[in-house]
Structure formats: C-alpha cells, structure tokens
C-alpha cells in the first residue's frame, strides 16, 4: 500500500483540490480530500510516462486528473502492477549521461551509415520498382525544358550525323534498353554529353568537333549509356529527395534554427554520390568498348581533350562532378593493360 499527496482536478472546472491518494495492493485506488472521497481502480487509470522531473499526471476514467510531484512513488506503483515496463526503461536511459553520450556516438554513426549506404540502396530499389513509362516521361519532360532553355538545333552535316547515328546504334544494340542519340548545339555547355532517364542521350556539336575520330565519340557515348543502364538520373533524383527527407526527419523536431545543419551534409554527400556514379559509368563504358573492339586509349584521349577544352571558361563544367580526370585516365589505362 502506497499513499501519496496529489492535486485533484475534476475536469469540469479549474478548481484545485489537495488530496491523499492511496494505492491498495488489490489495485483499488482511494482518493480522499476535504470535500471528496472516491474510489477507482488501477486498471481504469492512465499514468503518463515519466519525463525528467516534471510533475506526473494520472488520468482517471471519468475525465478527472491527479497531479503529483512524487514521481518515485508513482514509479514503484507502476512497477508493482507491472504497467508500462518499457516506459520505465526509457526514463532510465534518458537519465544517464553515459547512455546519452553513447547515443551521440551511435546517432552520428547511424546517420552516416544511413546516408552512405541506406539512401543509395533505397534509391536503387525504388528506381527498380518505378515503371519504365514514368522514367521515360521524366526524360522527355527534361528534354523539353532543356530544348527551351539551353539548346538550339545541331549544325552538324547530315552525312556526318548519319554516320554517327549508325555507329551509335551498333554499340547501343548490345545494351538492353532502347536508346536514342540526339545532337544539339549549345554555347553554354561547350563540349558535353548528357544522359537523360529513359535512354535519351544528347551530345553537343562542340563535342563532335572536339573528338578526333568516331571511336573517341563512341567512348563518351558508351559512358553515357552506362549512366542510363544504371539508371543514375532517376537514382540521383531519388537519393537527393531521400537525403532531404532523412534530414527533416532527424532535425524536424529540433526547430527551424537547424536548417543550415540540414542542408550542409546534403550538399556534401551529393558530390560523393555523383563520383560513385561516374566511376560506375566509366567501368561500363570500358566493358562496352572492349566488346566492340575499340581501344580504351580513345577514352583516355577524349577525357584529356575534354579536360583541356573545359579548363578555361564555360559556365557548366562537364568535369566538375567527375573524379579528377588524371585519376580516371590512370584507372582506364590500368584496366586496359590487364
């Protein structure tokens, strides 16, 4: 039997009534005050979980409420009746600095793991589950806005275009998806190639002019086919949104002052993701080139040319999201010599 001091509120008015509450071993609760005596049962009472040292609320079935400072006594009553054991555990965890500090370490590790492995994996599976039609529509949509904003019609001669298309369809035929090569002119982009979700690959006139032969051109296109094969476009959209959602989930309750701390890691991990994608596409391109009997040296050469052409002035840097070109060329040569 445990008796505690509490304040009683009937739930109809704001009147405070000091009472003594007795918890009997049978589960009966007796509430006694100056103008009040009532009995109820433990099973019809909801006890709020303990939270720091804040005053405890006990809600009675009829809408009345008891408030008490005697948290320890309420805890022992809960223990006796075996109510909400996990709430007691939660409070014990929240009480100790050792647990709190381990939580900091665990929290940082888990966040890092979620961003480094969880998000890419989830995006990968989500992209797989996405209907092909959706991906194609996203691609068409992007192409339409790029055509408005960035591109003009290609000025490459018909004969050269036809030859390029023919060689492109040769290498694209070995990859599963349907592919389309589009040539466009763009001053802003300079020598560049873009892969859109759904199999649209755009090469700029400047790139065609930069390439010293068809093989170099095909190397770049093979790299872009790699992006489509691995669905990098749609995956990076999904990864960005997932990372943002994760950050909101983590810091959402931490008030809005934290918006900076939410965006900073997002920006940092994005560049990491894109580097992984570039390496994947490079490996894909090397395999495709080998199958077609094209020397990987062409790939290394066009990368060097691209690097030189972008060194000075264009607004959009093709290579900015790519790993350092020298390192890529090194990797390509080492794979080739094997």
């Amino acid at each position: 039997m445990i008796t505690i001091k509490a304040i009683y509120y009937d739930g109809r008015s704001s009147t405070q009534l000091p009472v003594l509450v007795t918890f009997e071993t049978s589960g009966v609760i007796v509430i006694e005050g100056e103008t009040l005596r009532l009995t109820t049962h433990f099973n019809r009472t909801t006890i709020a979980s303990r939270l720091g040292n804040t005053r405890r609320s006990l809600f009675l079935a009829d809408g009345a409420k008891l408030e008490t400072d005697d948290n320890d006594a309420v805890d022992s009553v809960c223990r006796e009746f075996g109510q909400n054991p996990w709430q007691a555990i939660l409070h014990r965890i929240e009480q100790r600095w050792l647990y709190a500090l381990s939580a900091v370490v665990v929290g940082i590790t888990l966040t890092w793991a979620a961003i480094a492995f969880g998000v890419p994996l989830a995006a990968f599976w989500a992209a797989k589950a996405l209907p092909v039609g959706v991906e194609q529509q996203v691609g068409e949509q992007t192409l339409a806005s790029l055509d408005n904003w960035l591109f003009t019609a290609s000025e490459i001669g018909d004969a050269e275009q036809a030859q390029l298309q023919q060689r492109f369809s040769q290498i694209a035929a070995t990859a599963p998806g349907p592919y389309r090569l589009l040539l466009r002119n763009s001053k802003k982009l300079g020598a560049n190639a873009i892969a859109l979700p759904g199999g649209l690959i755009i090469a700029t006139d400047a790139l065609v002019e930069l390439a010293e032969n068809d093989e170099q051109m095909l190397a770049v296109l093979a790299h872009e086919i790699g992006h489509v094969e691995y669905r990098h476009g749609i995956r990076s959209i999904l990864q960005d949104s997932l990372t943002a959602i994760l950050m909101i989930g983590l810091l959402g309750d931490a008030s809005s002052i934290s918006s900076l701390s939410a965006t900073l890691p997002t920006v940092l991990v994005e560049s990491r993701y894109s580097r992984q994608f570039e390496q994947e596409a490079d490996r894909f391109a090397l395999n495709l080139l080998r199958e077609q009997g094209i020397d990987a040296e062409h790939f290394a050469r066009i990368l060097t040319l691209l690097n030189q052409s972008h060194h000075s002035d264009t607004e959009f840097d093709y290579l900015s999201s790519h790993p350092a070109t020298n390192k890529r060329i090194e990797i390509i040569r080492s794979l080739e010599s094997r």
């Binding site: 009480q95 647990y99 709190a100 939580a103 900091v104 888990l110 979620a114």
Partner: peptide, 13 residues
C-alpha cells in the same frame, strides 16, 4: 533535456 533530446533522435533513426 539534452539526454531526452539525444535519445529521441537515436530512437527515431
């Protein structure tokens, strides 16, 4: 509050 806050975050993850 720090202890409550950090436990909240870890359990949420």
């Amino acid at each position: 509050f720090f202890k409550i806050w950090i436990v909240n975050i870890v359990l949420s993850i």
